[in-house]
Nucleic acid binder design. Structure first.
Lengths: 190, 190
DNA sequence: GTCTATATGCTGATAGAC
DNA sequence: GTCTATCAGCATATAGAC
């Protein structure tokens, strides 16, 4: 067996939150998808649903930010790279049937006022995205201050456009947002 | 009595979804906040929770888009107007204790794959926002095609930044996104 | 139209044999 | 560590008096 029960539970939770959110996901669904009985869930995660969600979000968040260099490194021109990243996201979302790629922001919006513990976890993940994004864009030639602002804009536009595109079933918001974020770099020396 | 029972139910549902999302909001909470007994809820909304949510989202969406001219008309320069709108949003969110101003996008992200009927309602609301936003920015001097793309960018960045700011408890994402969206207009004749 | 009392199913969580 | 059986509580929704 290559994957542990604990890992399968985390993956299942992330997968379900990605498409259904936190509130609509039941521990029974997690149990079934992970092929792990209820008792195993509460053996590995004594604090129950919240703890499973927290660990699943951390793992998903860490994996998701790695897409940034993966999608953008192939493009020498940073403006092209930004456009390509948004275009790739749009294409993948359409091909996947308009389901979410990552549960972090969906769940963050959903639980920001009703699940304080999970809100803190989401904030930690977003913080690490901002730090890693800033580092990447500095590496790509932006000044430190500009890189942080650009990362915040990049993430805000990407996540907002994700929700719009997903709800409208259209790539138009992601394409428009990608062009706008790339345009930010018009004055930069890249 | 100035407000009908039906209106109070809608308002209560919108208020609760705004801070808790759809899944975490129970009809009992709606009943209590609206000061209407369970029977009244199901008398006015025979299809139950979903129907209350649909009507509440429609009303909230219609009210929310009216903030656009309200916040931006005072500013002659469109770039200033955009910055001001994002800054106002950030300030109001911070003063309100980081709770959401509008339930539409939060709920849209939450239910996009689990509640098809509500997803359709959310899509109709977003469509109407895009149409009305485009009209407004044409009125403010943008060309028709540019105005639609700008509206999509504006809404994506605003909503994404809302979630980031709300989760991080910081105005930084909203301020960065506002500056970026305003920068879009750098070449425009306003 | 309003309101109380309640039905029915499902929720997260647990107990305890193996 | 794994698994089955089950708890107690709460969810949405309804019935029926007023």
């Amino acid at each position: 067996m290559s994957t542990s029960t604990k890992e399968r539970i985390c993956t299942a939770m992330a997968e379900l939150m990605r498409t259904q959110g936190y509130g609509a996901t039941t521990v029974k669904q997690v149990s079934e998808l992970a092929k792990a009985p209820m008792g195993s869930l509460y053996h590995h995660f004594p604090q129950g649903k919240q703890q499973i969600a927290a660990e699943a979000l951390r793992a998903a968040g860490a994996a998701y930010i790695q897409l940034l260099p993966l999608l953008m490194d192939p493009h020498d021109d940073l403006r092209e790279a930004v456009s390509a990243a948004f275009a790739d996201a749009a294409e993948q979302m359409e091909q996947a049937g308009w389901i979410n790629m990552c549960p972090v922001v969906t769940v963050a919006g959903e639980i920001a006022d009703s699940e304080p513990a999970l809100r803190t976890v989401a904030a930690e993940i977003l913080d690490s995205w901002i730090v890693q994004g800033t580092e990447y864009f500095v590496h790509r030639g932006l000044a430190a201050g500009q890189a942080r602002r650009f990362t915040l804009t990049f993430l805000s536009a990407l996540e907002g456009a994700f929700i719009l595109s997903r709800t409208l079933r259209s790539t138009e918001p992601l394409r428009a947002a990608g062009a706008a974020v790339a345009f930010q770099l018009v004055n930069s020396t890249v």
